[in-house]
Design a protein around this nucleic acid. Sequence first.
RNA 1: GGCCUCGUAGCCAAGUGGUAAGGCAACGGUUUGCAAAACCGUCAUUCCCCGGUUCAAAUCCGGGCGAGGCCU
Length: 318
Amino acid sequence: MPGMSAFASALILTGPTACGKSALALDLAARVGGEIVALDSMTVYRGMDIGTAKPTAAERARVPHHLLDVLDPWASLTVAWWLARAEAACADITARGKRPIFVGGTPFYLKALLHGLFDGPPADAVLRAALEAEAARDGNAAIHARLAAVDAKTAARLHPNDVRRVVRALEVHALTGKPISDWQQTWDTPAFASDERPKPQAAPIPGVVLELPREVLYDRINRRVDAMFAAGWLDEVRRLRDLPHPLSREAGQALGYRELLEWLDAGGDWGATAELIRTRTRQFAKRQLTWFRHLPALVPVASDAPGVQEQVLKAWGE
RNA sequence: GGCCUCGUAGCCAAGUGGUAAGGCAACGGUUUGCAAAACCGUCAUUCCCCGGUUCAAAUCCGGGCGAGGCCU
């Protein structure tokens, strides 16, 4: 795993959306001489502030933040790009004698940070489009069968309707001549539990997941979404819509932004739209939780407990 | 008070005599270059209640309760 040294003194603070990560991180950063690196796939975009709960200018003045506002909303983003930037940011922070603190809740990026990515080929837009068209034309089963012919192991673990992953598997095979299952040796997934080959050591970055009772978390999510509306979220989305370029696929799928954009040009029941956004945000939190539950390296800490700061510091080994 | 319509899971809803579609929500899960995305699984021994007809009723009949509409 390249560049692990850049993460040598890093720390992680994660948790589901609206659990109180950012506020806590500010205090923690002051105590450990840290700078914050956003572990987030959406706060990278300029102009997407309210709906992504991006730290404010005042908060950023208190503690330096990295990887915020580094992309125009019409630009695409991938995990690999994020990971490379994160590594560079950490190197920079460390060189200045500070400690990088990853703060955010994008679980896929977190997993990539902890376990690395396999050294395979990046996405090939043209090939991918062709593969997707093929799936649409011949059916999901047909393309899945094609994968089974070249990579039985991966085909067996992917549902035929999981077109996205079937396409990527086919893409990697087409580009490298090797099945993706040969490349994917980095992660310790159950699918490879029986493999004999040695698994690389995961990067030992101390990490904490903030926890909150489900009902409390859901209530905070509902309130925060409403607070975002009150803060002018809809106007922010109007501004994005009036930009010279349309949002990239990645930015356009941000929670709430997608629904608000749809509401702006199709109209409809505002109350229903607001409720849809609250619901989808709760569902996202649920998905985050299933990742966190299965990342044993993370130490759980109750977000609403008195003395959280001390508990997090202790879990970090400080 | 009379007439009509309706009552199926948390919500919407199909089914009008042959053994409870579907959607949403909820809950669980997958996740190696779109991940705030995408995908998968589970979820009514029962159809407002009581009685009747029938080999068989959510479906037909009678009564009750509840909701809505119209009339006086």
